[in-house]
Design a protein around this nucleic acid. Structure first.
Lengths: 183, 183, 183, 183
DNA sequence: GATGAATGAGGCTTCATTCAT
DNA sequence: AATGAATGAAGCCTCATTCAT
């Protein structure tokens, strides 16, 4: 039984990721349930509130991004690693919803639950690490701050929402130029 | 009486600009009415549909931006002018709503009314003009396109939505560096 | 000035007759005003309430029908006169709205204003007169009552609302047969 | 739980039948819900649209009428059967709403959903059958058509709306005389 | 007297959330 | 644990009626 429960939770989260990505957080819980193939009551059994579901989706997405950031950190070339990270994060896969809006610095943090802020902080730490390594290797301007990168990333994620594949590459390239990252 | 009507229409548009800016287009018409100090029926008398109100707000905002772009165009230093334009537009005053999302290139243009697309095109033309002048003066990389700038602007406008004043300046500066605009 | 007022009242009544006929009493007062070419405030100046307007329209229509009934009464052949009357009334011209619903016997009379009941009674008297003359001439079954005719007329008026020209003639013919009126 | 759902759906349909009958299709959905003893959201869960509810009510009523028509068809005396049918249908029980307006021939059929037109056609077929049997038995004039009967029925249903029990019998009797149906 | 504008009440519909099976 | 059903609150929009010019 516990396995069923976990499986359903998983299905719902996956569905939420897609639905919120496509239609924004305004999408109805019903639609998430439908896409997950479960009843809406099941969604609410797993996530007491729609906000909870949104936050869980955000956490999940942030964890993926953090993992990606840490994976790339192992690369020998710190500049290359940082550039790849920016491209990957800006593209943001199918999750076009701006979950990254939850990253600090952010005004609306007060209302967020612990898990979300923790996940956001973890991601932010990974991002800072990548930046610092690149700066140490001379592959990023020293005066650039973590906040700068975070804001730019958020901005690019939104642009992703709108631009096409190749267009996004061009834009990310321009930003990397501005950051002093060699390409 | 026409004066009353015009004044109220103005009040509603102003209120809409603020409300949509703060809470996004999902904000309720009721709230716009409350902020404008009129009844909701008055809002609907001036704008038959919520979509109409949103579009009118967008047009108004775009027209302001276009005027700003054209005003700056008269500057002697084309590079300076372009830089100022980017900063001004990214800041975007109190209108944090991403009205700039209406700029081409954009997928969702089909559903938009004529006035909106016209206003968006006019703004885009002014933006392209500023870019070309800067490039002709050697104050912007020649390979940068109008689409690049438009996407970056849209991205920065979103970041504006979240970042603070000084932080925004830093970020815009980085982007200008990437565009090869001297500061 | 008085002439303007009267003219407007006339225009409104005419418009109301058409609009209510086409869309039923659910049609909006705005539409009546638009069709009359006046502002909605003018409509309400002349008729304090929408109900008042509806009743005035009904009275006007009833008076026309009464006049028609009296005009036909002069015919030599009482049976012929009665048959013509039924046909004319069932067709009801452009006023398909069932103003005849106001005729007695009717449950909802209590709520009606004096002018309406008076007009309805006058029409009913004219109708009774035509029937009695036909019966006196042996051109209608003696046991038929005014209520019978009134109900049938109301029914046919509704059918008119729906049927076509020739179809209506057939149906009225059948009813006249049932009433014993020679054709 | 399905039992609850079905029961509520039934309650809503029943309430709709009464409410629409009394106040016409313009009656508010709220009133239907109140009469059914459920919340208005429950009404909309069962019938996505007010139009859907109206149509479902119409279908239900038409099916009852069709069943009645077919039941009477088994009678030995075809004329008697037809007369009974007319009386029953004209009386139409508590459903004073003119659901019969949906019968062909009718202009507004285009906007109707499949189930409604099917139910209307089924009823019309049953009615035609009764008429033809009566004509074959010499108990109705041969030149009378199904359209004639349908229109008359519609008309009488409206009259039902207004007249009383005994008055209706008289009127139906007159129409049957006109149709050549012995009584 | 006529009008353009304003409004409160009400109608349809959606949705997050709760309940009973 | 999962579901179908129920609901209150809220949103958009319309309309009869009133008000200010």
């Amino acid at each position: 039984m516990r396995r069923d429960g976990a499986a359903n939770r998983e299905k719902v989260l996956l569905a939420a990721e897609h639905v919120f990505a496509e239609k924004g957080a305004a999408a109805s819980t019903d639609e998430v349930a439908r896409r997950a193939g479960v009843s809406i009551a099941t969604v609410f059994r797993n996530f007491a509130t729609k906000q909870d579901l949104i936050e869980a989706t955000a956490v999940r997405h942030l964890e993926k991004l953090t993992a990606e950031a840490l994976r790339l950190a192992d690369s020998r070339d710190a500049g290359q690693a940082f550039a790849s990270l920016m491209k990957t994060l800006a593209a943001a896969g199918p999750v076009k919803m701006t979950l990254l809006d939850l990253l600090p610095p952010h005004d609306g943090r007060e209302g967020l639950s612990r898990p979300v802020t923790e996940a956001a902080d973890a991601f932010r730490a990974a991002l800072d690490g990548a930046l610092h390594r690149a700066q140490a290797a001379g592959a990023a301007r020293p005066e650039v701050t973590g906040d700068d990168v975070s804001l730019l990333l958020r901005a690019l994620a939104h642009a992703t929402d709108l631009g096409e594949g190749e267009a996004l590459d061009r834009v990310v390239g321009i930003v990397l130029d501005g950051l002093g990252v060699p390409r």
